[in-house]
Simulated scan of single mutants.
Amino acid sequence: MTSAPTRVLVVEDEAAAARVLMDEVGAAAGFVVAGHTCSGATALRRVVSDDEVDLVLLDIQLPDISGMDVLRRLRAAGCDVDVMAVTVLRDPSMLQAAMALGVVHYLLKPFTAATVRQKLEQYRAFHARRRAVAGHAIVQHEIDDVFTALRAMAVDSLPKGVGPESLHAVVTQLRRSGAMSATQAAEVLGTSRVTARRYLEYLTESGLAERRSRYGGAGRPEVEYRWSGDDSSPVPPTSAPDGCPDSST
């Protein structure tokens, strides 16, 4: 007998990130999108009143109430739905607080479609192991299997050659300037253009930057990368799904 798919509620107000999350959930075997909202209050009402949600992909910084408040209120209401926190924040205290509230994983922005796909696959393995031991007295090897599957979700998923500190530096500069070339990124990082381009292409694949040709100089046009992740950028925001405002946190 085939088990029912995992129903996922996406709570994300950044258009590009929400699109990647929903696309990957919809394409992943064993998962289905249960809905999308960019409001913490709406997510809270939906999850508490509706048992048709199995997993929440929860942005921590939302325009109305924080994802942490959503988590606290869910747990206070006795709701033990699985939650995967999604955030750009790298504060260790935030991580500890999220873990204390029972999040199954912590997905850092910026992320690629491949990263989301990997985390969903790892969650599916963890959920299957956990479901297999439900309803009977478990033995040691079953406990070990569950925790092995849980630890698998903590594997660093940045591609080879992309480091978190350098990525943060590129994101910070790109958000500040709005657009930059691989040459300019190389100056920020103190690396070669090839290495710098790897970071810019990673952001493009993540949906947080877009690639354009820069004209005006002699010779071939230079490729530039424009930030498209939030409203503070001079780039016009992309359309948000399900009528959400084009905003980012």
Rank of each mutant, 00 (worst) to 15 (best):
175 R>V: 03
175 R>I: 00
176 R>N: 09
176 R>T: 07
177 S>L: 05
177 S>G: 06
177 S>Y: 00
178 G>Y: 03
178 G>F: 01
178 G>N: 11
178 G>C: 04
179 A>C: 09
179 A>W: 09
179 A>H: 05
179 A>P: 00
180 M>I: 06
180 M>A: 11
181 S>K: 06
181 S>T: 14
181 S>C: 05
181 S>G: 09
181 S>W: 15
182 A>G: 05
183 T>Y: 08
185 A>F: 11
185 A>W: 01
185 A>T: 04
185 A>E: 02
186 A>S: 15
186 A>P: 12
187 E>W: 01
187 E>L: 01
187 E>H: 00
187 E>I: 00
187 E>Y: 00
187 E>A: 01
189 L>V: 01
189 L>Y: 02
189 L>A: 05
189 L>M: 08
189 L>W: 08
190 G>N: 08
190 G>R: 11
190 G>F: 11
190 G>V: 04
191 T>W: 11
191 T>K: 14
191 T>C: 13
191 T>M: 14
191 T>S: 15
192 S>F: 03
192 S>Q: 06
192 S>C: 08
192 S>V: 11
192 S>A: 12
193 R>N: 10
193 R>L: 00
193 R>G: 02
193 R>F: 03
193 R>E: 10
194 V>C: 05
194 V>H: 10
194 V>Q: 12
195 T>K: 14
195 T>E: 15
196 A>Y: 01
196 A>I: 03
197 R>S: 09
197 R>W: 01
197 R>A: 08
198 R>P: 00
198 R>H: 09
198 R>G: 05
198 R>T: 04
199 Y>W: 07
199 Y>F: 13
200 L>E: 13
200 L>N: 02
200 L>G: 04
200 L>A: 03
200 L>T: 02
201 E>Q: 13
201 E>W: 00
201 E>I: 04
201 E>C: 02
202 Y>N: 07
203 L>C: 03
203 L>A: 07
203 L>E: 04
203 L>P: 04
204 T>D: 13
204 T>A: 15
204 T>L: 14
205 E>I: 07
205 E>M: 05
206 S>E: 03
206 S>R: 01
206 S>M: 06
207 G>R: 13
208 L>P: 00
208 L>T: 04
208 L>G: 00
209 A>E: 09
209 A>L: 13
209 A>K: 07
209 A>M: 05
209 A>T: 00
209 A>N: 09
211 R>C: 09
211 R>M: 14
213 S>P: 00
213 S>R: 14
214 R>K: 13
214 R>Y: 10
214 R>H: 08
215 Y>D: 06
215 Y>H: 15
216 G>I: 11
216 G>T: 01
217 G>I: 13
219 G>S: 12
219 G>W: 07
219 G>V: 06
219 G>F: 08
219 G>D: 10
220 R>Y: 03
220 R>H: 09
220 R>F: 05
220 R>P: 06
220 R>V: 12
220 R>E: 08
221 P>T: 08
221 P>S: 11
221 P>I: 14
222 E>I: 15
222 E>S: 14
222 E>M: 12
222 E>Q: 14
223 V>H: 11
223 V>Q: 10
224 E>T: 11
224 E>C: 15
224 E>M: 02
224 E>Y: 13
224 E>N: 09
224 E>G: 10
226 R>Q: 15
226 R>M: 13
